[in-house]
Design a protein around this nucleic acid. Structure first.
Lengths: 163, 163
DNA sequence: TATTGTTATACTCTATAACTATA
DNA sequence: TATAGTTATAGAGTATAACAATA
């Protein structure tokens, strides 16, 4: 039994902790702010989940687009993802060095590259996605509920038509 | 009446436009991807709307937090916004140079700064917010519907508890 | 010893201009 | 002339380490 601490227990509350909660003020009604915070949380969870695969969201998105559209030209892949073509080069270089994707000559246009996943890349993407669904999307649906997730996706798509 | 174009109208379709739509593949079901695209659209619209005020989202958020919590310590403002304190310094410097915010000695702790808006800063924030609601949030509610906006805010907050 | 504000630094993302080889 | 891929470069945003002043 611990010694009862009574006597000089007037601890003079060293930490009055003026920890009143911080008000969001005008921010509270701004969609952009709340959207940004949510997005950062979701990306953070994605990063943790994909750490063992060493795969960032942008890298995953490139693999997924190539997988779904094999042979697509490099410029169209970057355009579909909203990544400018200059910045796309290094991103693709890394995936190619890891032997997950490859550039091939595009039939009928020697300026272009047609992009493909390697066999390793296909297997890797499948594994990563499985892990993502089992861990990351699982957690998302735990806080959201699965009906809410579909509702949310639909609302988000409306916003994407804004700009 | 325009001349009927018939004869050599075998234009040899110079642009066969293999513009089949790009499939999103696995991305289609990933919340993070759709969330990110929506967030970028909303921020883009915010930027355009605030261009005449020369105010970025992070700057607006700092002004709003100080306005709602006058005298709050610098470290707590940056913490509330998830901005690390080293990076917060330059952000605040700029707002102070524009005479919108000011650092004051914090009562009872000579290490800390208490932050306040200037009179100019208060008026500026009010104007910016009014303009934002009239233009930006108006457009948001046009694509969303106002009931959907509240629903969306609630769903986003659930996600923010993730990480 | 720990915390606040600060500087310095580095790494990622993003944006623009310009080059080359093709079309 | 225009387009695809590329390089170089600059600007944001973000993260860590370390220091001085103060607690």
């Amino acid at each position: 039994m611990p010694a009862p601490r009574r006597k000089t227990e007037t601890v003079e509350i060293e930490t009055p902790e003026e920890r009143q909660p911080v008000s969001l003020g005008l921010l509270d009604n701004l969609l952009g702010y709340r959207l940004r915070r949510a997005q950062l949380s979701v990306f953070q969870d994605f990063l943790v989940t994909m750490k063992e695969f060493d795969l960032r969201p942008a890298q995953f998105s490139v693999l997924a687009i190539i997988d779904a559209n094999p042979g697509l030209k490099q410029s169209r892949v970057s355009e579909a993802l909203g990544i400018n073509r200059a910045n796309f080069v290094a991103l693709l270089d890394e995936l190619e060095q890891r032997k997950l994707a490859r550039r091939a000559p595009a039939p009928g246009d020697r300026r272009s590259n047609a992009l493909f996943l390697t066999a390793k890349g296909e297997a890797f993407l499948k594994d990563a996605y499985r892990h993502l669904v089992a861990q990351h999307e699982k957690r998302v649906e735990t806080v959201l509920g699965s009906a809410d997730k579909q509702q949310l996706l639909s609302l988000l798509d409306k916003l994407t038509t804004l700009a």
